[in-house]
Simulated scan of single mutants.
Amino acid sequence: MSSTKAELRISYLANRKALSADELNRRNALLLTRFIDFVQQQTQTRSLQLVHTFLPIRRQNEVDTWPLIHWLWQYGVSTAVSVTDTETNQLMHYPLTADTVLTENKWGIPEPVIQAQPTIDPTAIDMVLVPLLAFDRQGHRVGYGKGYYDRFLASCRPDCLTVGLSLFESVERITDVSDTDVPLSHCLTPSATVLR
């Protein structure tokens, strides 16, 4: 089935909010297992030193990335997160450690409280975990419609893994993909690892 981004945004926001707490926990646990397998497979052939992740908006029933983050730290991989600059419509990237102080922005996204630490250049990132509402079999995604992640992903290295995390399976095709949309290299769901 083919759909527009606007149609998918409405239906998948509703689908996600309709998940019970038990079902959300079940899907997150399956995603964690799939993510661990994926990372261990990738590190057999490539160096994975820095992973950029999103932090979940709890009220939106987003994928819970915290178990993934804690596993990465135990696995010896550093993590980074973003702060949204609404004046420039860009994401600024900073280290995420166990000591990072977080505060929610106006959209409910946890962000680090910035002191004086330098930003991380996107070209230093080996993998980006990308939030999404829906995705298709070609690796295109539907986010919240602001374009922050497409601008960010366009500035990453060509060999950077761009990995969508989805609580639902793929749709067949998103019909209104634009030239500025950056397709994902992989997408992980509770039951599948999808490659573009």
Rank of each mutant, 00 (worst) to 15 (best):
S78E: 03
W71L: 02
L13V: 06
T162C: 07
H186D: 14
R141F: 14
W71S: 00
H140D: 07
P122Q: 06
W71M: 04
P190H: 01
R9C: 04
N89C: 13
V77F: 03
S78R: 04
V163K: 09
P158S: 11
T193L: 10
A98F: 01
A29H: 13
M92R: 15
R59G: 02
E169S: 12
S20I: 09
G143I: 12
V101M: 04
E23Q: 15
D150A: 06
M92C: 11
M1P: 11
T162S: 12
E7H: 11
V63G: 00
S155A: 06
K146I: 07
L165V: 06
L72G: 03
T84V: 10
V171G: 08
L161I: 11
K5S: 08
A14W: 04
E104M: 04
Q40L: 05
A124G: 00
R26F: 15
R27C: 07
R151K: 14
A14N: 10
R26M: 12
A6S: 11
T180G: 01
G139R: 02
Q44W: 03
I120V: 07
V113D: 09
L167C: 07
D37M: 02
D64N: 12
G145C: 10
S20Y: 06
I109G: 05
Q90H: 14
K146Y: 08
T193K: 08
A29F: 05
V63T: 02
F135N: 10
A154R: 02
L91D: 01
M127I: 02
T162R: 15
Q90D: 12
R16I: 14
E172L: 13
A124Q: 11
E111M: 10
V77I: 15
L188K: 11
R196H: 14
L31N: 03
L195F: 09
V77T: 09
A192D: 15
Y149H: 10
Y75D: 08
Q60W: 09
D136F: 05
A124V: 01
A134W: 07
I120L: 05
I10D: 04
R59M: 07
L133R: 11
V113A: 08
R137G: 01
D37K: 07
Q74P: 02
R46H: 15
R137F: 00
T100I: 06
L184Y: 14
G108P: 05
V128D: 00
A21W: 08
P158K: 09
P112K: 11
V130Y: 00
G108R: 04
V77A: 03
Q41D: 08
E23V: 13
T79I: 01
M92Q: 13
R196I: 10
T45N: 13
Q44F: 01
H186Q: 10
L133C: 11
L132A: 07
P95S: 02
D150I: 05
I10M: 03
V63H: 00
F54C: 05
L72Q: 09
D159M: 10
Q138E: 08
Y12M: 13
T100F: 04
L72I: 02
A29N: 14
S170P: 14
D64S: 03
E87L: 06
L188G: 10
P131G: 12
N89Q: 15
L13D: 03
P118Q: 04
T86D: 12
S82G: 06
A98P: 03
H140P: 03
S82R: 02
A98N: 05
D179C: 01
S155E: 05
G164E: 14
T43E: 10
T100C: 06
V142Y: 10
P112G: 09
L102M: 10
V113C: 13
D136N: 05
G108Y: 04
Q115W: 02
V130W: 00
